[in-house]
């Protein structure tokens, strides 16, 4: 294993998030989170529902606005109000539970519109890049299809390819298989596994424990608004320290 001495890719410092609207008054979701992710990390975040896993992930690219704290992404505090978050989001791909493909665009256009409009690629360059990625997720024959003609598993693989088409430095996965029929989970996990093998930095929120154990290099346990334990997969599952984690793992089996 190589040890890198460079600063982490993402560094989260004292992150707080509370919801304050008509439905939730002063609901604390994240409470003083401190964690960092290095380049090449494949970090899985697991934990019971309502622990704040998705909220935490969505704070990383500011789809959710944190209440306070710092998130340094490639050295820049992206929670700073003066930061152009759109630029940084280009470098942070995100895959959603509900896929969120653009239904009015073809599969190919779903992939190419970002590089064309935001990175100034020509149509040909963007399509070349997109076709490579479609091949990688084994859907190159669906380039001219529309999202609604695809199965859930295919949609999610397209969604992954769409994010990759921006050539991000990190990929955020927000329960990517939770909305899928069981028989389609495998094909999506397969793509994610290959991505991890290619040293893509990934932060994954999931309930797929077996997959986490197999692919992750770090697993974080979130419960009660904070990260309660972090370890490598082996020790995480075999020697859990935190009582909440022990209870959680017991329920899982």
């Amino acid at each position: 294993m190589t040890t890198e001495t460079t600063s982490p890719l993402i560094e989260v410092r004292h992150l707080f998030k509370e919801f304050n609207n008509s439905r939730h008054r002063d609901l604390k979701v994240l409470c003083d989170i401190n964690v960092s992710f290095n380049k090449g990390d494949v970090a899985f975040i697991v934990g019971p529902s309502g622990a704040g896993k998705s909220t935490f992930l969505r704070c990383l690219n500011r789809l959710e606005e944190a209440s306070s704290g710092e998130i340094l992404f490639e050295g820049v505090n992206i929670l700073d109000k003066n930061v152009d978050i759109d630029r940084h989001r280009q470098k942070m791909g995100m895959v959603f539970q509900q896929f969120n493909l653009f239904p009015h665009l073809s599969v190919l256009s779903n992939l190419t519109i970002g590089p064309i409009k935001l990175q100034g690629l020509s149509q040909e360059e963007a399509e070349e890049r997109a076709m490579k990625l479609l091949k990688r997720v084994r859907l190159e024959d669906r380039a001219r299809s529309f999202p609604n003609q695809l199965s859930g598993g295919q949609k999610q693989r397209i969604a992954i390819a769409r994010s990759l088409c921006m050539e991000p430095d990190v990929m955020l996965f927000d329960e990517p298989t939770s909305a899928l029929d069981p028989e389609m989970v495998g094909e999506v996990l397969e793509v994610m596994r290959e991505l991890a093998e290619d040293k893509m930095t990934m932060i994954v929120v999931t309930h797929e424990m077996a997959f986490a154990r197999e692919v992750a290099n770090r697993i974080l346990f979130m419960a009660d608004t904070n990260i309660l334990e972090e370890n490598d997969p082996e020790n995480f599952f075999e020697h859990p320290q935190n009582e909440r984690l022990k209870a959680f793992l017991e329920k899982m089996i």
């Binding site: 789809l63 989001r89 280009q90 791909g93 959603f96 653009f102 970002g114 935001l118 921006m166």
Partner: peptide, 18 residues
Amino acid sequence: IDEGQFEAGASLGFSYTQ
């Protein structure tokens, strides 16, 4: 339009207006 469409656009780096 589903909120997810706004989020998908934003997550790719598109501004609100784009």
